[in-house]
Amino acid sequence: MTDRVAEMSVKVPPLPVTGGTATDLVTPGRKGRGPLLLSRRDMVILALMAGIPAFIHIFFVWVPTILSVLLSFTSWNGIGGLDRIKVVGLKNYSDLVSIYQPFWPAVQHNLIWLGVFLLIATPIGMLFAVLLDKDLRGTRFYQSALYLPVVLSLAIVGFIAQLFYAPEQGLINNLLGTTGQNGQQLIDWLGNKSLNLWAVLVFASWRHIGYIMILYLAGLKGVDPTLREAAKVDGANEVQTFFRVVFPVMAPINIVILVITLIESLRAFDLVFIINKGLNGLELLSVLVTNNIIGEASRVGFGSAIAVVLLTISVGPIVLYLTRSQKGIGE
């Protein structure tokens, strides 16, 4: 008995689940780790601390997720009970890729969104942070000005975007002289399919830059100044100091920034929904989920199928992140 408990404890060092006296639980720690001593009270507390979050997590995250996956194989208009749900197999998925017109544009737009954030907005935000970290004159002013859009909800940003891009009354067309009146050419910023996504991305980036900037700035403030001094003494210039010393030191923050950029791109929704309900060139997967599930005649099964696609795409970065951070622990 004692042997078995000891064996189990070795396998799962922090959480011995079987009962036994305190002495049973003394395990010969590996790699010089001290002996693990847990009283009954400790175990109850541990169980509660692990159990409650686990319950919340499973109940509010995994149960709905699994239900969504199950619903994605059914057809249901959201009315009535379980008996009204019809299993249709993979029909939702095959319709999605072949018949449902907004799907592929939405996938494409999500990828463009991600690309712009990753390659343009996030680096600009980081650059601003680095510049602001230099304590230029008026730093606080720039900081507030750049951070301001983050305080605004994306719905408000959507309204502002419309004031800029409206065809006749909009600021941009009036400045450019492209209102389409008095013989002028009209630039239809929000109505032209090949323009509107980029027009919206300008505003999305405007907000994202401020967000990244403030996060990165906080990280930069935490970098030990002696490191920079040492680099200076060794004769490194500004660029070298940043890329060879500061950037590697900030690895954990960099990963947070990367993950946030991914999330922001995948969950993009508010801005396009406010502008034109995510139609006509502004389709995004999140909007398609909403359009199918919420509304007068919902197609819950079909919308769930789109949600599953979105989930599958999201799982990629999560796995990447977890494997990388697990590796960090191992070392």
């Binding site: 995250v61 709905p64 997720t65 969504s68 993950v259 989920v289 919308g303 989930l311 999201s314 999560i318």
Partner: peptide, 11 residues
């Protein structure tokens, strides 16, 4: 991220 990905479908 997970919540964001499935919250709308979870409703």
């Amino acid at each position: 991220l997970v919540v964001a990905a499935c919250s709308s479908s979870a409703t």
